[in-house]
């Protein structure tokens, strides 16, 4: 199948083609899933090199199970988010103690004046605040509010009921509000951007 035609195919259909030896499906899946996994891992770990390692390992696991993938049992992305989160958890456990040095700095000395800088400042501030949340809260907040997944799907990824997911994201969001909204002036952030 040509690469262009694969844009309309869902992940499961591409994975079936991959398992049948279709090289174009391999490329299409990598291009589609690689950036998503990397971005998610980076948000959970706040470390580029580690996020790349996790992405590589998560995708290798997907390629390994591709021939045995049973269509309709789970979404490919749900499975991948789950594997990614588990790999990130392993790495976070290995870090032993919170190495706060690896967390990005919250604020620049100079208040940003352009929209791009505003965004960057917000992103960095959020990332730093996320890294101060308990791991499960961080994962739930990222999946819900940044990846935009529905609560039932997050429940599948995290092995939780939908109500438990709601509770986890609500607590995480409250903590973020406390950390971020009180420091807006300090961070040089302003509204309407």
């Amino acid at each position: 199948m040509p690469l262009d035609a694969m844009h309309d195919s869902d992940d499961e259909a591409l994975l079936e083609l991959y398992a049948c030896g279709d090289a174009a499906a391999a490329r299409a899946l990598t291009a589609r899933l690689g950036p998503r996994v990397l971005s998610h891992a980076h948000r959970l770990l706040a470390d580029r090199a580690e996020a790349e390692d996790v992405t590589q390992e998560a995708l290798l696991r997907l390629w390994r199970i591709a021939p045995d993938w049973r269509r309709g049992e789970a979404k490919v992305t749900t499975w991948l988010y789950r594997v990614t989160a588990n790999l990130c958890t392993d790495r976070l456990r290995r870090r032993r103690g919170t190495d706060l040095d690896s967390v990005p700095e919250i604020a620049d000395d100079q208040p940003p004046v352009e929209v791009a800088l505003q965004r960057q400042a917000r992103e960095q501030a959020l990332q730093a605040a996320l890294m101060r949340l308990p791991e499960r809260q961080r994962q739930a907040v990222v999946l819900r509010h940044i990846e935009g997944l529905a609560n039932p799907e997050i429940g599948q990824i995290m092995d939780l009921t939908t109500r438990a997911v709601e509770s986890l994201t609500a607590r995480g969001k409250r903590s973020l509000e406390v950390m971020l909204l009180g420091q807006r002036e300090e961070l040089g952030l302003y509204d309407d951007t």
């Binding site: 690689g34 950036p35 990397l38 971005s39 891992a41 980076h42 948000r43 580029r48 996020a51 992405t55 505003q118 965004r119 960057q120 917000r122 992103e123 501030a125 959020l126 990332q127 509010h145 940044i146 935009g148 969001k173 973020l176 509000e177 971020l180 909204l181 952030l189 509204d191 951007t193």
Partner: peptide
């Protein structure tokens, strides 16, 4: 709520491969 701007910035940013 007021975190929407932060989440939006995170969505637009993210780690680019």
């Amino acid at each position: 709520g007021d975190l929407a701007g932060f989440f939006e910035a995170a969505r637009l940013g993210g780690a680019e491969p």
